[in-house]
Design a protein around this nucleic acid. Structure first.
Lengths: 151, 151
DNA sequence: CTAATTATTGTATATTTATGCAATATTTTT
DNA sequence: AAAAATATTGCATAAATATACAATAATTAG
């Protein structure tokens, strides 16, 4: 294991075991352990590891390790297969059985972009808002819904 | 609904439907809609809402709504709600819409413990193997099924 | 109503984080 | 091994974000 990999492992451990509220905090701890690096490198490491600062309930900021961080196969898009459009209708194809829960997800994240969904076994019809038809935005909406919201 | 609350609602919607990579991005969109505020206020709003910038797989940063946000459905165990038994039948309750995919999961992980499943919207009936009725084992089977593999 | 209290916001700025570029180091190719 | 290609890093700084403080607005108490 080279220095970079070792460093990354320690970064995760430190963040798991400490309250870190800035990159400089973390930088100091790493340097105390003998690592030699700068904030710039740390910023890059954290980006690669998807570790980021979030607001905590105690009104402070902390760095946290995302729950799904450990190289999760991106195939886990909740059964998503494809998205196509037909006029005012978006058609989402899913793996067998996934259409209904995905439609429920959408129903629970309402948006101006659509006015309703109906799901079969592996297909969802989404009635888009005729005053606000924007395929690209709907695609982004769905992408965010499916990737931001893992179990 | 006063201006602040309205603004916060819109912030969530905008982040859900767009790719936002800085507070200034968001600020511009809000101002386009007629909101009058500064980056400082936005920073405070986002802190309160626990919305933060995270590294995305495409090597960019995006603001995202945290997973446990109230607008997202709570789905810790893949929509699982409860498990009960009635004679040779196990009855699994799920969140609305989750019954079918969960039954598919079970069908794809066959076991001597049951001989078939049938799913409605939020309920699965599982016909247990009458030669091998063991409620506790089935509970463990289901527990493992729901916690093991990723989506 | 008026005063007191609390909440919201902007300004200005400090703090924090990200990145272009050049230098080094590492790995791969020949 | 040398050359070429790729990756890692620091430096300097740009870009982005958070916050102290003061002002203003809204709410509550008397």
């Amino acid at each position: 294991m080279n220095n970079k990999q070792l460093r990354k492992v320690r970064i995760k451990e430190i963040i798991r075991d400490n309250i870190i509220s800035s990159q400089d905090d973390l930088l100091k701890l790493l340097r105390d352990e003998g690592f030699s690096l700068t904030q710039a490198t740390l910023s890059r490491d954290l980006k690669k590891m998807k570790i980021s600062k979030v607001a905590y309930t105690d009104n402070t900021y902390r760095y946290i390790i995302p729950k799904d961080s450990p190289s999760k196969p991106k195939s886990g898009n909740r059964g998503f297969v494809s998205l196509d459009f037909s006029g005012h209708m978006a058609v989402v194809r899913t793996l067998a059985g996934y259409a209904s829960p995905m439609a429920v997800l959408m129903d629970n994240s309402p948006s101006d972009l659509f006015i309703g969904t109906i799901a079969g076994r592996d297909t969802i019809f989404v009635a888009l808002n005729e005053n606000n038809i924007n395929h690209e935005k709907f695609r982004i909406y769905l992408e965010n819904l499916l990737s931001d919201n893992e179990d």
